[in-house]
């Protein structure tokens, strides 16, 4: 018996849906539902439709400063990781002439991805700390008289840790899209009298944008959903949306947490939708 194209498509996606529905769709609905519930203050919830949880969020100035902090980190990380990621990928694809060496260097960039993020984060402590290597070196050189305080347990440290963790998410997709650019196109552009700046602006940048977009989706969604790096690396100096939400959960304020979670999820989805509007990822990847 011949199955129709639609039937084959759905049969093959059943396992995926069997995971996504109970572990993505339903949990999101549960959180959404909880956000309209009331709490007895001891972890119990009862169904009594209310918007007070949302009202609480939108009237609190704390919310706005939390979102400001989190979005600030997301944007800073996005800028640094995309700039570094773009140029590293560009270097590997267009400047390293031996493809074997390029592949080797690419692997060098990806190896840390296979190690623990948390370990990679705390590994900055011996470097950035007050008695860390960097401060020591600067003191030895006489460039500073007192150790720099802002290196660790600060916004600076948070951004460093994020960029350290997430640049790889930029390099891989950008490398992938750049590697598909036919080198003859660039030669043709050179023949047509294009300068190297023109080539960058008119050929390489547009043709790598799907990679940049894919990387941006990873970076934005990971930073927006993180609380751990902020907590450890800021030394308590900065808070994050998810961090506050985690505190709420800790004190069993589920409905409040749920409302804040819904707002955050909607915001992240909107940001991703914006990126997807700019680039048709599905078509680009399968190209």
């Amino acid at each position: 018996m011949k199955l129709s194209r639609n039937a084959i498509g759905w049969l093959n996606t059943i396992p995926l849906l069997a995971v996504l529905i109970p572990f993505f769709v339903v949990p999101i609905l549960v959180v959404l539902m909880a956000s309209f519930m009331q709490t007895d203050g001891f972890g119990g919830m009862f169904m009594d439709f209310t918007l007070s949880n949302y009202a609480g969020i939108f009237t609190s100035s704390l919310t706005y400063s939390l979102y400001y902090e989190t979005i600030k980190f997301a944007v800073l990380t996005l800028i640094f990781s995309s700039v570094i990621g773009f140029w590293v990928a560009y270097f590997l694809v267009f400047h390293v002439r031996n493809p074997l060496i390029a592949m080797g260097l690419f692997l060098v960039c990806t190896v840390p991805f296979w190690t623990s993020n948390i370990i990679r984060m705390i590994s900055w402590i011996p470097l950035l700390g007050k008695e860390g290597l960097i401060n020591r070196a600067l003191l030895e050189l006489g460039l500073i008289n007192h150790p720099l305080e802002f290196l660790l347990y600060s916004s600076f440290a948070v951004v460093v840790a994020y960029v350290h963790q997430l640049t790889i998410f930029m390099i891989v997709p950008i490398f992938n899209s750049m590697a598909r650019i036919d080198k003859r196109i660039i030669e043709a552009a050179l023949d047509a009298g294009a300068s190297r700046l023109d080539i960058m602006r008119l050929i390489i940048l547009p043709m790598s944008k799907s990679g940049i977009a894919l990387g941006a989706i990873f970076v934005v969604s990971i930073v927006m959903g993180d609380f751990f790096v902020v907590k450890v690396m800021s030394g308590g100096g900065s808070a994050s949306v998810v961090g506050a939400f985690y505190e709420d959960v800790g004190v069993l304020q589920y409905p409040n947490a749920a409302a804040s979670a819904v707002v955050l999820t909607v915001l992240v989805m909107l940001m991703v939708a914006l990126i997807l509007r700019i680039v048709n990822i599905r078509r680009e990847i399968a190209r």
Binding site: F23, F24, M224, G225, L264
Partner: peptide, 23 residues
């Protein structure tokens, strides 16, 4: 299905975790 997949990829992990826990 594709957008559901992307949604699952980008949804804040802790939120999803709490949702699953509550469920």
């Amino acid at each position: 299905v594709f957008y559901m997949m992307i949604g699952s990829l980008v949804a804040p992990g802790l939120v999803l975790g709490i949702g699953i826990g509550l469920g």
